[in-house]
Design a protein around this nucleic acid. Sequence first.
DNA 1: AGTCCGACTCTAATCGTTTAGTGCAGGATT
DNA 2: AATCCTGCACTAAACGATTAGAGTCGGACT
Lengths: 336, 336
Amino acid sequence: MVTIRDVAKLANVSTATVSATLNRSAPVSPELQARVRRAVEELGYAPDGVARSLKTGTTALLGLLVPDITNPFFTQLVRVVEAAAQRAGYAVLLCDSDEDPAKELTYLRLMRTHRVAGLVWCPVGEPGPEGPNARTLAGLPIVMVDRAAPGVAADLVVIDNRRAGYLATAHLLELGHRRIGAVAGPPHLLPAAERLRGFTDALRERGLDPDAAPVGQGAFREAEAYASCRELLGSEPRPTALFVANNHMLIGVMRAIADLGLACPADISVAAIDDFPWANAFNPRLTTVRQPVAAIGESALRLLLARIAGHAGAPVRETLACELIVRNSCAPIAGG
Amino acid sequence: MVTIRDVAKLANVSTATVSATLNRSAPVSPELQARVRRAVEELGYAPDGVARSLKTGTTALLGLLVPDITNPFFTQLVRVVEAAAQRAGYAVLLCDSDEDPAKELTYLRLMRTHRVAGLVWCPVGEPGPEGPNARTLAGLPIVMVDRAAPGVAADLVVIDNRRAGYLATAHLLELGHRRIGAVAGPPHLLPAAERLRGFTDALRERGLDPDAAPVGQGAFREAEAYASCRELLGSEPRPTALFVANNHMLIGVMRAIADLGLACPADISVAAIDDFPWANAFNPRLTTVRQPVAAIGESALRLLLARIAGHAGAPVRETLACELIVRNSCAPIAGG
DNA sequence: AGTCCGACTCTAATCGTTTAGTGCAGGATT
DNA sequence: AATCCTGCACTAAACGATTAGAGTCGGACT
């Protein structure tokens, strides 16, 4: 390893001068600057970020902790955060908690060990037996995204999930559907609960009884949704439309519909939350509520960088709007 | 920040004893161990990974550099590598070069600065004006995945792309198709070239002239494939089947087919390389060649960990087999 | 009794930077 | 002429861990 000392020796200056030259942190005469740069070039010297971090107490590292990177929402978020972090001069330490509270805690510790400058965190909803205690998180700038960890006071960026649920359901109602089933997420997760609330809001607004609506609840996963959907579509009278609470579940639902020999949207209309790159290539093209992932990521990073820069004050909650993308998976009700 | 000194003071021992206790690196009497652990608990001490890294010269960090994280292949790879790294006690520093050689070089430097213990690297094929020179990479254990960087001697894990192209094409040929178009990737990328070679292999094997086959080449992207596909399907006589070289391109192709008012597989059969989670939920379900992403990731990490452990020797090249997944996007040729 | 050994424990150097504090030379100011 | 800046450059002390190497203290052996 070639160190700053080697450079200093070759350039016949002190290490302080090398450091000052490279970081422009103090004035250095043009002549010495030239000598230093020549030596750096000759030796192929690159400063050791670890040593620098130890001395300065900061790293150019941002943590990003997501519960499931295969979910396109988080995939896109990773991309956006990574790009924004790069622009701000940070690299990203990516961890996937896999929806597992124990792994999550391990990773939170790891973030601290690696001294990340800040953390973008999409918490697993369910706190484990010994949830992330305040001490693990103390002093670390954090922005939570999509979900809120219970008992953690940090900035939060979410979409208006209730409205998202409302938008999708209202669309189905406008097309004349009255018997609408819901494939909902796990009740303990904020987004799932809120989306379902939006669903019932819409029903109630049209004078329908939400309690009479067939609702299946389960994890935000394909298998659960598949089972849930088959059950819903087996009930009598069969729903004419389905509200689906997230992208993974939508896959399960579409599979179930196909396996039951039904056609979408002819036999059953489907509207879901979470747009994703392939939604527009499906047959039928899927009507979804799109989350502004780019805006979410940008907001999160903006808030986080402000906190890193020392911005104090009470935790901020930013709620972003989402948008209904009408495609072809919802049809007016037959004979409606 | 609470340091090892604070713990030592509270436990009334030396820092060496604290370190020995925590790392089990030297025998410590039960009594002192207890005192140390109590102090650690009381203070909520967590060792500083940065300081440790500086002293030991190693980090528990693995770099992962991919060209496009929105590509499901790389998304899955990220997941697999992240999980495997976690099992091996490493965290992952994720960077997305965005298919940009300049960004790639920046990130390679960053990996060195952060002193990653090793690097899993899916290179951008095209070397920039001043490609990643040997010095930037010197001494860093590297495993390349999917693509080979020109001029870099490092282990390489790839699939048998030629056979993948062959498998998909042979399937179409067996269904009776004779006029088969190819939506191929950029010729300078190894996987793209090899896959196209497998395509021509299959044609030749059946006595067809590969030069007569309509081939569109472009970046591994949706837009390019969309345009390419429209052109191919506009030619006379229209191909009855399409070979598509990657997942992004497949999306473009399916969109183009839909926009042209054609039905798949009734009017046109499609077989593609790269399976992805949604392929089975499309309508029609997509026939693809699946890459063993899990095996690829595991192999890459196995090789990398061996190199980190000091394993010397010439670069290894591992070629993994892939598998044709027959679904519903290919039909026997009408009247065939 | 004297020596040696094993089992702990401690002191202090070290990793590669950054940076406060000090020194120094030469020109401007009184 | 003495003093004071000002602008560079240097020395040396951190940062928080790990780890040689040295010291200590009983008990076992000769």
